[in-house]
């Protein structure tokens, strides 16, 4: 009807609108619609199928009183902080080393980045094998005669997250290194010349001049890495399936999947995924504000 009353406006630039139709549908139906739908149904007591029987914040109360969810959040917070700090620090240090006009830079980069091409499943399975207590690192060191040597992170609830971290860092630091290296290369040569003329030592130039200049790169990296961490799922499935001891390495994404598709308790799954969205927004909104809020003036 609308197109009949105002044919001119809607038909104008019609091809572009057809071309953008998938985007419009994706954003409106899936991203916006899907999100609202899930948040809406997180206030119901949906079990096997979604139904509109509202129970207020019951699902959220149940969620936060569930020890498995509490463990998931703690794990994610610990893994997230460690992973953020280590990927960014290691990525930056590696990028600085790579920026020293070294030989074979391409070879070094190829080696550091190839894990990023692999899936978390492959990453997790390889490290599960290397960390195998009988045949892996521990077994080898014991075979050398150090009988009491113990390195079995995946089978103890206290250390399992470090095991995940070893694999996660292996997969992701090369990528962060590349981002940081691109950032370093973007810095004006003259800055370096000026620092050299002033007699500032190289390490100090990096810390005092270069790092502040690379603020946008750091922020972008942090946001990308953080958004990836919240989705953490495959790696845990492959390495520990959430164990040992049932839930020592549980993460929120796993909780959501299990309640939605295994335990047939949709309401819990919806409430948990809404909490995940909330945590992303906490990261995203300040960033968007910094990134886009200021630009309007310039």
């Amino acid at each position: 009807m609308a197109s009949q009353s105002r044919p001119f406006r809607l038909l104008h630039n019609l091809n572009a609108k057809i071309a953008a139709l998938p985007m419009v549908l994706t954003t409106m139906v899936v991203f916006v619609g899907g999100t609202i739908w899930t948040v809406f149904y997180s206030f119901t007591d949906s079990k096997l199928l979604p139904r509109e029987r509202f129970v207020g914040f019951d699902q959220y109360e149940r969620l936060w009183s569930n020890s498995r969810w509490a463990v998931s959040i703690e794990n994610l917070a610990f893994y997230g902080v460690m992973s953020l700090v280590f990927t960014v620090v290691m990525g930056f240090i590696l990028a600085v080393l790579m920026d020293q006009k070294i030989r074979y830079e391409d070879t070094f980069r190829t080696i550091m980045l190839y894990p990023f091409a692999l899936s978390f499943i492959v990453t997790g399975l390889v490290w599960q094998w290397i960390l195998n207590p009988d045949f892996g690192l521990q077994g080898i060191v014991r075979g050398w005669g150090w009988e009491s040597f113990s390195f079995d992170p995946l089978h103890s609830p206290e250390t399992v997250l470090y095991g995940l971290l070893i694999a996660g860092l292996w997969q992701g630091t090369g990528f962060v290194m590349c981002l940081m290296l691109a950032g370093l290369r973007g810095i004006d040569e003259d800055i370096w010349k000026a620092a050299r003329v002033d007699g500032i030592p190289t390490w100090k130039t990096y810390l005092v001049v270069v790092v502040p200049m690379m603020r946008p790169v750091f922020i972008t990296t942090l946001v990308i890495v953080a958004a990836g961490i919240i989705k953490l799922y495959d790696l845990v499935v492959a390495m520990t399936s959430g164990g040992p001891g049932g839930n020592a390495s549980q993460v929120p994404a796993m909780y959501v999947y299990d309640y939605m598709f295994q335990a047939q308790n949709l309401g819990q799954g919806f409430a948990a995924s809404t909490m995940m969205l909330l945590s992303v927004l906490i990261v995203l909104i300040p960033w968007a504000y910094l990134e886009f809020g200021g630009k309007k003036h310039g």
Partner: peptide, 21 residues
């Protein structure tokens, strides 16, 4: 506007859209 939503949408955890899809 749609493009901005699209980019922001890429940060939404997949989990929240799993069931609607």
């Amino acid at each position: 506007v749609f493009f901005t939503i699209l980019i922001f949408g890429s940060f939404i955890p997949y989990q929240i859209m799993l069931y609607p899809i």
